[in-house]
């Protein structure tokens, strides 16, 4: 079972890399001070970060609006935060989403657009393939609405701030803890 810990930072925060290593240290019960030395970061081909010295710690990061968030777990994990802001929602849905998702959003008047978006992004961030891979080839929506899991991976929406949608993707999520970064 996956116990996911999410750390968040607001607008006044260290660099993204510093946020990442400080949170990794916190997740592992270490002090965030001096974490840069003991938590070197490398990136997979599509940019997903990992810790070569700590292969048991998996992470995924996201930023949107004023916030940076990092999800940490002892299993593979994906996370996405998206602020709600004006955009070409219908065009984006038609252009980049699966036809099933596009049909669902059209039926629902695009009310769930950001939930579909965050669910899809968290799914592709789980694998690390990113949006350039098969973003439009899988669907997080069915006839009845949003699906709780896709290909055996759970999609869990986590309440955050109003005007933001946050979704975590992992296999068999048992708990999600949301904490401020330090």
């Amino acid at each position: 079972m996956a116990e996911v810990t999410i750390y968040w930072y607001g607008p006044k925060r260290p660099s993204s890399r510093q946020c990442l290593v400080r949170c990794a240290a916190l997740f592992s019960g270490e002090s965030p001070e001096g974490a840069e030395a003991s938590w070197p970061v490398e990136r997979e081909e599509r940019g997903k970060p990992f810790f070569p010295n700590h292969p048991q710690v998996h992470c995924s990061v996201t930023h949107s609006g004023d916030y940076w968030l990092g999800a940490f777990c002892t299993q593979q994990v994906g996370i996405d935060l998206q602020i709600h802001k004006p955009g070409r929602l219908a065009a984006l849905s038609h252009r980049f989403f699966h036809p099933e998702e596009d049909r669902y959003l059209q039926r629902a008047g695009f009310a769930d657009f950001y939930r579909v978006w965050a669910a899809k992004e968290s799914f592709v961030k789980f694998s690390g393939e990113g949006i350039g891979g098969n973003f439009g080839r899988f669907s997080v929506a069915g006839q009845q609405g949003l699906l709780p899991e896709v290909d055996g991976l759970q999609l869990r929406f986590v309440p955050f701030r109003c005007d933001y949608t946050l979704c975590v993707c992992a296999r068999e999520i048992s708990s999600v803890l949301l904490l401020p970064g330090k």
Partner: peptide, 9 residues
Amino acid sequence: ELNSFDVMN
């Protein structure tokens, strides 16, 4: 500091 949503827009 654009994210995927911004880039796709």
